Computed example of a mutant assay.
Amino acid sequence: MLTYEPDATLAHRLDPRTKLAVQIGFAATALAHTTPRSLAVLSAVTAIVLFSAHVSIRRTLVDYRFALLILALAPLIAGVTLGAPWFDTADAIASGLASYRVLLILLVSAAYVRSTPVRDSRAAIQRTIPGKPGQLLGIGVALVFRFLPVLQADLRTIREAMAARLGTKRSAVDRASTIGILGLTRAFDRADRLSLALQARCFAWNPTLPPLAFSRLDYPVLVLAVALAFSAFV
């Protein structure tokens, strides 16, 4: 499961604002450049980012398995035509390149998640975007980072319980509907408990956030982020 893991890597020592800038710049240039040569360069940048955060490729791909399934099906669906030649290779290749760009963005985001505490992410957002909009966005990001792993664990528990009761013998539609209904029930229960917990802890709109400061390591990475952003317009 993709969560923050304490470590002493280069990515862990960077300011979260620097890492957010790299993500934005990388996503912008990945969506702007669609040629195989550009994707090869972006793949090299992705490899460097993953290495800087000590991200396991195998583990990350396992965590992204459902997204990978959708990305893999997209080129096949895009290539299908209603008449001759029944499969358009050009459309399939274009869709495949788009899916690969999305995969690279997901891998870079995995490095951010592994190397950045939730409180630091909230602090970076609220200090970059002033006022209530920054507070709302910071709270939303913090809740997603904390809430999503819990929901994933609930779904995994439901699937394991079904397998233990020979649920795998049931039809795919029956299994999917059962998991969906129980998953939604758990999600609403979790949301109610979260609301009570926030009230019990006197939830504050503007809590004391961790201090942030740029170091000498951040400046060359910020230059890289700016270069990536500008490359989207080249």
Rank of each mutant, 00 (worst) to 15 (best):
R127F: 01
A72R: 04
R119N: 12
A72K: 11
A78N: 08
A74N: 11
I129P: 03
D154S: 09
T29V: 14
R58K: 13
V49N: 03
F87Q: 08
T128E: 02
G131R: 05
I105L: 09
R114L: 15
L136T: 09
V118F: 09
I105W: 00
V102E: 03
A123Q: 02
A47N: 07
A94Y: 12
I105M: 14
G96Q: 01
P117L: 00
V62E: 14
R37M: 14
S109Y: 10
P130W: 05
A74W: 01
G134V: 02
F66G: 07
T34R: 15
Y100V: 01
T29H: 03
G79A: 05
P36V: 10
L155E: 01
G140H: 02
H54I: 03
V41I: 15
P149F: 02
A53V: 07
G96T: 04
T34I: 13
A27W: 08
P75F: 06
V141H: 08
V49S: 02
A142K: 04
R114G: 08
P36C: 10
D63P: 00
L106K: 01
L136C: 06
A27C: 05
V80Y: 11
V113Q: 08
L50M: 15
F66I: 12
R37P: 09
L107P: 00
D154C: 03
T128W: 01
L69F: 11
P75W: 03
I70A: 15
R65A: 12
G140M: 12
P133T: 05
I139Y: 09
A74Q: 10
I70F: 14
S43D: 05
A32C: 11
V144W: 09
G83C: 05
V80P: 06
Q152A: 14
T35A: 14
G138S: 04
I129V: 15
L104N: 02
R59V: 06
I70M: 14
S56A: 12
Q126G: 00
R146M: 08
A84Q: 13
T81I: 04
H54F: 11
S99V: 03
S95Y: 05
V144N: 10
L137D: 04
Y100N: 02
A111R: 03
V80S: 09
G138H: 01
S56T: 11
Q152M: 14
S121M: 07
L148G: 09
T35P: 04
A94S: 14
A74V: 09
S115G: 11
L107N: 00
K132I: 14
F26P: 01
R101K: 13
